[in-house]
Write a protein that binds this DNA or RNA. Structure first.
Lengths: 150, 150
DNA sequence: TACATAGTTCAGTATATTGTGAACTAAAAA
DNA sequence: TTTTTAGTTCACAATATACTGAACTATGTA
């Protein structure tokens, strides 16, 4: 018996839009749809079967996508006593850790640009100034993040 | 005759690091190396042959990578009178346009999350609050960008 | 023990990516 | 006109990706 969960038309629309945005960040379609579902559905913890049936994916496709998402720390699961299923959810409460990883990448990029600037010939003035401005803008963004978390 | 350009050891190291960062943003290796070279080299405008020889790429690989970068607006080229070559460069002076496109994507994501929040059941209080906090953080970043550009 | 549940793993298919070398082409130079 | 320059295009190879269905497995239930 299908365990497809009920969704309003609005929710279906939001899931589709969310999935497209996720695909644009280089996530594969099945993973994108699972993340979208877990972000939009009112039931925030869904079983393997609920995910599979609601999204119309194959069993193995669901398994592989879930394992990729688990490996990438995009989802987690919990179990319930007296129930052998796993319930998958988006650990949205950890969004600050996710942000921290993003900003660590940005910091690396900022520092590399600073090293590049430090050794560039002063003959390419316009290039250097634009690179410096851009790096300073990134630093300003970084500051917004680090100020909020100090 | 090879038109390989001269690079210091430090520059070679910076190019390699830059290329790795670019590959992590889902750019293919050849494209990543070309962008890295054009960001680090003191000569900011390089010909097809200088790029190919300096990076040790095949002719067709160079052609395809350059055309991808041109199509993605990551590089541009200029010509010089009395010289049939094209000279490729990173239009770093346009970094604000690039930032604008990034933030347009972030804005779309923020608005979608606001729509999701607006229709979520109030029963998932913790989820909703975390999603709201995250969306507000993204809005704060967005504000840094839009304040600088108003 | 037998059966159901909750998945995992594997082989295969289809398609996309990332490159290579060789042949081709258009414009300019000799 | 012939040759050189500055690339482009194509056929091919190697590898990666994104799934499917079918068989398998581990744990719990009857």
């Amino acid at each position: 018996m299908s365990e497809k969960i009920k969704l309003t038309k609005e929710q279906v629309g939001l899931i589709e839009q969310y999935a497209v945005i996720m695909e644009q960040t280089n996530l594969q379609p099945a993973m994108a749809k699972i993340l979208a579902l877990l972000n939009v559905a009112d039931v925030t913890e869904l079983s393997f079967n609920q995910i599979q049936d609601t999204l119309g994916l194959s069993k193995s496709g669901t398994s592989q996508a879930i394992n990729h998402l688990l490996a990438a720390n995009r989802i987690e699961y919990k179990t319930k006593l007296g129930d052998q299923k796993r319930y998958f959810y988006v650990p949205i409460q950890n969004w600050k850790d996710t942000a921290a990883r993003h900003f660590a990448g940005i910091e690396t990029y900022i520092k590399l640009n600073q090293k590049i600037l430090a050794q560039r010939s002063h003959k390419t003035k316009e290039f250097n100034e634009a690179l410096k401005e851009m790096t300073e803008f990134l630093s300003a963004l970084y500051k917004v993040y680090s100020d909020r978390n100090k």
